[in-house]
């Protein structure tokens, strides 16, 4: 038996939705546990006072990445069957910059705004309302920005495929960057604790 289970038809639609709720509960639980339901803690990342956002994000990324790599290696998981969002260089570059600006102004990202709302943060609720309004605005202007939305298409592509490198090398490189980043984070937190 190997994964992804859903793609092989081993779990049905109803079961997949139950699994979705369970996945979400665990996701929300860990976000709140680490303090990522707090706008003050999230924003502190960008003043270098508290780098919990970076630490948690990159620990999660390397954990899941190593998991996929080794499960695929042992033949338990068909990694190439996992959905990859297609790459469009320009909207993803500009979208990232815009997202970062909105993040530091609003204090949350979409997932953490839900967690903040669930624990009683009224500013989190306002952020969710803003997100919904923004998505509606985006939808309404979409016909005019569609050419930009599809600019710079590279298709579904991984870094290893793009650079023509073995997957293992890229995995090693990202783990190395993350570990170096953790070391720098610990240093910066001490330096900017009271900034």
């Amino acid at each position: 038996m190997n994964g992804p289970f859903y793609n092989y038809g081993w779990i049905g639609e109803e079961a997949s939705l139950i699994f979705a709720v369970v996945t979400g509960i665990a996701f929300g639980f860990f976000l709140e546990r680490a303090g990522l339901g707090s706008a003050k803690k999230l924003s502190a990342q960008f003043y270098l006072r508290d780098l919990a956002v970076f630490k948690m994000m990159f620990t999660a990324i390397i954990t899941a990445m190593l998991g996929v790599y080794f499960l695929n290696w042992f033949g338990f998981l068909q990694a190439d069957m996992i959905y990859l969002t297609p790459t469009y260089i320009w909207p993803q570059l500009i979208g990232g910059l815009v997202f970062g600006v909105g993040f530091i102004i609003g204090g949350y990202c979409p997932g953490t705004s839900c967690v903040a709302s669930s624990t009683g943060s009224l500013d989190g609720v306002m952020n969710v309302i803003g997100l919904l309004a923004g998505i509606l605005l985006f939808g309404e202007v979409y016909p005019w920005i569609e050419p930009f939305y599809t600019a710079g298409p590279l298709g579904q592509i991984t870094i290893a495929q793009y650079l023509g490198l073995p997957v293992g090398w890229v995995v090693f490189g990202i783990v190395f960057i993350a570990l170096a980043g953790f070391k720098v984070s610990e240093h910066l937190e001490k330096k900017y604790a009271n900034a």
């Binding site: 706008a39 909105g102 530091i104 500013d123 952020n127 803003g130 997100l131 923004g134 605005l137």
Partner: peptide, 10 residues
Amino acid sequence: AFFGGIIMAF
């Protein structure tokens, strides 16, 4: 928080 949400949505 509201306008940050709008910007982030885009």
